[in-house]
Computed example of a mutant assay.
Amino acid sequence: MPYHIQILVQQKKKQSEIADSIKVHKSTINRELKGSRSLSGDYVAFEAHKTCSERCKRDPYKMKSELKEQVLGCLRERYSPEQISGVLARRAGSKQISHETIYRYIYANQSTDNESIMSFLRIRHRKRYSKRGSVGKRGSIPNRIGIEPQRRPGSTSSG
């Protein structure tokens, strides 16, 4: 898709025309062109893709340097992420961070760190699954026979 955008930009197409051709909103094209310019000021698809890939690898925005060290120190002392969140909230001058952000950091970096952060958790799960988009099993009845009126062969319904 970035290469398609690059070709259309080189053809001097308007942002709204580019958006229509790839079926996205024109503000999406505006953000893409603003945030992905090369040093020369032109849109280069390869550079845009590289920049996007680097952004995806970043740590969560709150987990940086000193805060990350505080969280790792608390994990080494066998605090749970919920307890770490509470401790940091009570400390004066410390940033607050949710336990969910800590869990996201742990599960995102479980294979990249030399020291396994997962080993510091009290309860270790192999993999976390998102609840979004999953079909619930609770509401389905196996081999259900419906109560809708059945049509008999040869009968006509008048209605």
Rank of each mutant, 00 (worst) to 15 (best):
G73A: 14
V44K: 12
P2A: 09
G139E: 07
E100V: 06
T51L: 11
Q70M: 13
I29N: 02
Q70I: 02
D42T: 13
V9Y: 03
R126E: 09
L72F: 12
Y103H: 10
S53G: 10
Q15W: 11
S111A: 13
H49S: 12
Q83T: 01
G136T: 08
S119Y: 13
S40E: 09
F120H: 15
P2L: 11
S158F: 11
Y43E: 01
R128Q: 06
E82L: 15
C56A: 13
S40I: 01
K13S: 05
S27R: 10
C74Y: 15
S155Y: 10
L67T: 06
S116E: 06
I7E: 07
Y103D: 04
H25Y: 11
L75Y: 10
M63G: 03
R90A: 14
E115Q: 09
G139V: 03
I117N: 05
L72D: 14
I18G: 03
C74T: 00
G86Q: 11
M63I: 10
R152T: 00
L88S: 03
E32Y: 06
G93N: 07
V9K: 13
M1H: 14
I123V: 12
R138S: 15
G133C: 04
R132D: 02
D20E: 15
I106A: 08
R58C: 02
Q96N: 15
G73Y: 11
S111Y: 12
S130E: 09
H49C: 09
I29D: 01
S116N: 14
E115I: 12
A92E: 14
G133K: 06
R151V: 00
T101D: 06
S27E: 02
H99D: 03
R126L: 07
R124C: 08
H125I: 02
A48Y: 10
R128P: 03
E69W: 05
P149E: 02
K95W: 00
L33D: 01
R31V: 03
K95E: 06
L75R: 02
K57S: 03
D20Q: 11
C52E: 09
S158R: 10
E47M: 11
D42W: 07
R37M: 09
E77Y: 02
I117Y: 11
L67W: 00
G35K: 14
Y107V: 07
L88G: 05
C52N: 08
Q10K: 13
K13M: 10
C74Q: 06
S130W: 09
R122M: 08
R128S: 05
I22L: 13
Y3R: 14
D59K: 13
K137F: 01
Y61W: 12
S65E: 12
R124E: 08
E47T: 11
Q10I: 00
Q15R: 13
F46E: 13
Q96K: 15
I18T: 06
D20G: 07
Q6S: 05
K95R: 10
R144W: 06
I123M: 08
T28V: 06
T101H: 07
Q96F: 07
K23D: 11
G139S: 13
V71P: 00
